[in-house]
Design a binder for these strands. Structure first.
Lengths: 233, 233
DNA sequence: TACCGCACGTGGGCTA
DNA sequence: TAGCCCACGTGCGGTA
């Protein structure tokens, strides 16, 4: 419960420049031959020792930075700290992967993706379908998609849309409202959905590109603005 | 250009269990007193030595994991590796922060946030408004919001929506279509928008909560499913 | 007491 | 050659 124990962790890097053998193990250098020591090798040894200290300091400095970065409490092993860093990196990796899956940036390719995991289907349980649409942006797009989903009795559980440079990508999580659906019906539904969305995408492509939604540096500035914060953490 | 140089990096952890002094510095233990060594202290020293080796192996094992995790090439310093890890963590942190700004998770608090940066306004340039709505989810919500935006002549440039547990959060980037707008008009527009969205949120709260969109473990499984991938990288 | 984690200085392997 | 990086064993300070 005494923090002074770990003082070397904090001060060791900066303050331990008192040169000589403050505690080291191999300090005696084990000269068993009993010959006179040459001044040259002595200075070499000193250089070596100092260089090695600089190397240790370099590593420990990075370790210290990492400790602050992962909000690790003091009194934590090097090993445990590194383990914590590993967990942090893994979690951040999967997090960004998940987020960028949901929030994609529209590409220049028209496409409709329907994703349905039949394996996790359970009787008398809701069925979810994931749909992604990427096409030219236009005013009637949302209402057409909405109409198509309504005609197939699909409910929008989650929707993410991103438009950039006149292109738009919409990701939907859809819920099949008709409760008694077997796998065959779901497969048919999937095909119908793909067909309808495909038509919408095709009719979007035939449009002449409007100049309304070009990439504007202003919008970029808006996103990067420090004011651009919701207040939620 | 010879990889054997770095073989200790790969093999050192696993294969260096040949016990004795393979190269170490302090191996001589510097017994300058010339007395007989006690068996007890000798075994203690050996224990210490082995424990220290285990500790080193533990750290190096984590370092090796980290090296794979950040796709660091072999032939990289411990120090440089740690520096790379630091950069990686910093980048991932800012990345997830940016992403979660755009794609928020609905809270239990009703709120309407209008964000408008008047400072970046330029004459004869489009004006963008950021609007965030968090409230109870219900079927008519989208059409009501759409109607409100239309009545104010606002165009939806970008929209992100996330529903979870019967709550929904919608983030919009809106474009003011009326070109000749001065700051006073924009401020009035901002107030009107806040008023209209506030009414929609209030009417959502008065609804009795439907049980349709409770948190379902199935949905969670759907998101985490390995099949849940768009094909875009 | 025994154990643990650390910094230390060293020898060895390798590169420029 | 000098310089770099590493694993090694050790003394020390602190905990259980």
């Amino acid at each position: 419960m005494d923090d002074s124990v770990w003082s070397w962790t904090q001060n060791g890097i900066a303050n331990q420049f008192s040169d000589s053998d403050h505690g080291g193990g191999g300090g005696g250098s084990s000269v068993g031959d009993g010959e006179r020591v040459d001044g040259k090798v002595e200075s070499a040894s000193k250089n070596h020792s100092e260089a090695e200290k600089r190397r240790r300091d370099r590593i420990n400095s990075h370790l210290s930075t990492l400790r602050k970065l992962v909000c690790s409490p003091e009194k934590m092993d090097k090993a445990r700290l590194l383990g914590m860093v590993i967990e942090q990196v893994k979690q951040l990796n999967s997090e960004t992967k998940e987020l960028s899956k949901v929030l994609t940036i529209p590409t220049h390719l028209d496409e409709v993706i329907i994703d349905l995991d039949l394996n996790t289907m359970e009787p008398n349980s809701d069925v979810f379908i994931r749909a992604s649409v990427c096409c030219e942006d236009r005013a009637e797009l949302f209402s057409e998609i909405k109409h198509a989903l309504k005609s197939l009795r699909l409910t929008v559980v989650q929707a993410d849309m991103t438009s950039l440079g006149g292109r738009i990508v919409c990701n939907f999580i859809l819920c099949v409202t008709n409760n008694n659906t077997n796998k065959e019906e779901i497969t048919t539904l999937k095909e119908s959905l793909k067909l309808l969305l495909g038509r919408i995408v095709a009719s979007s492509s035939s449009w002449t590109m409007s100049s309304h939604y070009r990439i504007k540096s202003k919008r970029q500035r808006f996103f990067c603005s420090p004011n651009y914060d919701t207040g939620r953490s």
